[in-house]
């Protein structure tokens, strides 16, 4: 049999996806209502034995049978659920990461499911057979770094609330938590000794209009050609040609703040600002050098570099 999980050097076991919730993973225990129910049945059985009352025997065993069927149904409600992935969009520190759990179920509807990361609020959902559905479960992202979600617990008390079936999943997903962006009045300047030709202000107007291009997610808002949109031509983006070498560096050394976290926050704000302007920018941190570029992928690289700065390999 293939191992369901891989052992990382941290000692924590992670689950591989797609992960099928099978019998080896599902635990089952009575809820407190199940315990109450059990004691009520015991009392009834005692009464039936005491009075040798066959009708009472019948009804006691009927309810016992119902509870027993409920136990199996509870297990079956969880068994067969497939978890395809657990992932989240990057967030900024202080926000809440929404981990999307992609789950599917083969044949029957599953109701009354709940997903919860240890220490967070549970999300209730139900599943219909079909392609995977995304369930958003929240994890608070307090500090920058790589956020590894705690153990995910899928559980159900459906159909009767007398038993709870649950399975724990340790997703290997990690999501970068960028530093909380902070505003600064700093101007971005050409890095001394850099290869750039001139120093420019962010959001400068010194660009030449090239033409309209179809909008793609990630394009700066202020470049959307609203006039074109109002004419019904769809979302178009104005594209500008920057002057050759009109790039600059966002530089660690330029931020005159001592506190590392505060510094990172300011740098983060600068990256965002630069990205918004659509300019080409680079990032220079001690030990990190990202050459100037633009676009969402570059922005991601920069922010990620800020997120994990100084945190070592694990990034936490």
């Amino acid at each position: 049999m293939k191992p369901d999980s891989v052992n990382l050097n941290s000692g924590r076991r992670f689950d591989r996806f797609p992960l099928l919730l099978g019998r080896g993973r599902i635990y089952l225990l009575p809820t407190r209502y199940g315990v109450v129910f059990f004691f009520a049945l015991s009392a009834m059985l005692f009464g039936a034995v005491n009075h040798n009352n066959n009708f009472a025997f019948l009804m006691t065993f009927l309810l016992a049978g119902i509870a027993l069927v409920g136990l199996l149904a509870c297990h079956r409600n969880l068994a067969g659920i497939c978890i395809h992935s657990v992932s989240s969009e990057p967030v900024f520190a202080g926000e809440t990461a929404v981990f999307t759990i992609s789950v599917s179920v083969p044949k029957t509807i599953r109701s009354g499911l709940s997903a919860v990361f240890d220490g967070s609020n549970p999300v209730r959902f139900s599943l219909s057979p079909g392609p995977p559905t995304g369930i958003g479960a929240l994890v608070a992202a307090d500090r920058r770094g790589l956020l590894k979600p705690p153990t995910l617990r899928l559980s159900t008390v459906y159909p009767f609330g007398l038993f709870r079936a649950w399975a724990t999943v340790a997703p290997e997903a990690s999501v970068p938590v960028f530093p909380r962006p902070a505003a600064s009045s700093l101007k971005m300047t050409k890095r001394p000794g850099g290869e750039g030709a001139e120093t420019r202000r962010i959001g400068g107007q010194a660009e030449d209009f090239e033409g309209l291009w179809p909008y793609r997610p990630g394009d700066p808002m202020q470049h959307i050609a609203w006039k074109a949109f109002s004419k019904g031509r769809g979302l178009m983006v104005k594209r500008f040609i920057s002057a050759v070498g009109a790039s600059f560096f966002i530089d660690w050394d330029q931020v005159p703040v001592r506190d590392v976290e505060k510094k990172l926050s300011i740098l983060c704000g600068m990256v965002l600002q630069a990205d918004q302007s659509g300019a080409s920018y680079g990032l220079a941190l001690p030990g990190v050098h990202l050459p100037p570029a633009a676009g969402p992928a570059h922005r991601f690289e920069c922010l990620k570099a800020l997120a994990v700065f100084g945190l070592g390999e694990e990034g936490t």
Binding site: F57, L58, F61, L62, L63, A64, G65, I66, L68, V69, G70, A73, P159
Partner: peptide
């Protein structure tokens, strides 16, 4: 569930 519980009931 009730139908499935009936044989259990009878057996018990």
């Amino acid at each position: 569930t009730v139908l499935l519980a009936l044989p259990v009931m009878a057996l018990f």
